[in-house]
């Protein structure tokens, strides 16, 4: 186990800056997510840490060791690929044992550790199968067992769950988290699914156009986005710039940066039919345009002074007699107001 640190790493492909002066620390034993839209550089960063890509400048350290001149096979990492990349010509056991054979640990030791790893992912009985005889979820477990069996210093996951269907994906998220806790390995995973990133990780790095926009614990990043992109990429946000009009009272939170933008997340807004009177609430009026029922939750789209505002709340919290076209009051606690420094949009 080891910490990983990435300092001022830049990588260009032709005229494209895939990584632009990226810096991020991954302390020992943590679970980290690299999040961003496609083309943001998150996979490039992961592959640079793995050693498949060599950065043009900057340093990458695993433990205390600078790895710029260390090829992949000498970096002592474990990696899981999007398509699992199980060797089709080998059995499950041979797949898992590949890294041990390369390290020449000896037959008995190899068998023991393969058994342990397969037990850890609950596939103890499947050692003799070939990968094509397994289901998607099982393949994923084999890939995980193969990646951790060598006790690597760091575990790298490239969109490990994206090939699974939704139900299985949620199961695997917990499973992954459990195993990571159990062995305490520093884990870095790439995803474009913000929910997955928020669920799993101790720290999120958000990338866009090759730049590290923001890095921090999920809750911090979610409630204090560094810019508008982060605010809207990590969940949805209503921009409050032009909100005014009759009865509107938008309170500005303490320490609001000059030239910043106010925003509020859809789930933090409450809807009421009468003007609320409580203190410490921001409020404005809006016309209900559409109300979409989705089981326990409901989504409302409203118009206020030319702004479109989205509200997500429990269906039972919205008065049942509101109808499309009604003029309603929206309120949210001032501390839930996001103050977003204006950067690049």
């Amino acid at each position: 186990m080891a910490e990983v640190s990435v300092n001022n790493v830049t990588k260009t492909f032709g005229s494209l800056k895939a990584l632009d002066d990226v810096t991020m620390d991954f302390p020992d034993g943590g679970f980290f997510a690299l999040l961003g839209p496609s083309g943001s550089g998150k996979t490039t960063l992961l592959r640079a840490i793995a050693g498949f890509i060599f950065a043009d400048s900057g340093t990458i350290r695993i433990g205390d060791q600078p790895v710029e001149n260390v090829p992949v096979e000498k970096r002592d990492i474990g990696m899981m690929f999007q398509n699992y990349a199980l060797f089709p010509n080998m059995t499950v056991s041979d797949n898992v044992g590949f890294g041990l054979r390369v390290r020449k640990v000896g037959a008995a030791e190899e068998r023991r550790r393969i058994g342990e790893a397969l037990d850890l992912v609950q596939l103890g009985q499947h050692g003799d199968r070939k990968p094509h005889q397994l289901s998607g979820g099982q393949r994923q477990r084999v890939a995980l067992a193969r990646a951790i069996v060598t006790n690597p210093r760091v575990l790298l996951l490239d969109e490990p769950l994206s090939a699974l269907d939704k139900a299985l994906r949620v199961d695997m998220q917990f499973e992954l988290k459990r195993i990571q806790r159990e062995i305490g390995i520093t884990t870095i995973f790439v995803t474009h699914d913000q929910e997955e990133a928020l669920t799993l990780s101790d720290k999120i790095g958000i990338l866009r156009d090759g730049k590290m926009i923001q890095a921090g614990p999920p809750r911090d990043v979610y409630s204090n986005p560094a810019d508008l992109f982060t605010a809207t990429f990590l969940g949805e946000a209503n921009i409050l710039d032009a909100l005014a009009g009759e009865g509107a009272d938008i309170k500005i939170p303490h320490g609001f940066p000059t030239g910043g933008t106010l925003a509020v997340r859809p789930e933090n807004i409450s809807i009421s039919q009468t003007e609320p009177t409580a203190n410490g609430l921001s409020k404005c009026q809006a016309v209900l345009e559409r109300r979409v029922f989705a089981g326990a939750m409901a989504t409302c789209i409203l118009q206020s002074n030319g702004n479109r505002i989205k509200v997500i709340s429990r269906d039972q919290d919205i008065p049942s007699d509101v109808a499309e076209g009604d003029r309603l009051w929206l309120t949210w606690p001032v501390e839930k107001t996001l103050s977003v420094p204006s950067g690049r949009h």
């Binding site: 793995a50 498949f52 090829p71 992949v72 096979e73 000498k74 002592d76 990492i77 474990g78 990696m79 690929f81 999007q82 398509n83 990349a85 199980l86 060797f87 089709p88 590949f98 890294g99 390369v102 390290r103 193969r146 990646a147 060598t150 790298l156």
Partner: peptide, 13 residues
Amino acid sequence: DATLEEAARSLGA
């Protein structure tokens, strides 16, 4: 699948 080669390298081969 070229990622098979990458997987093998990541395992130390």
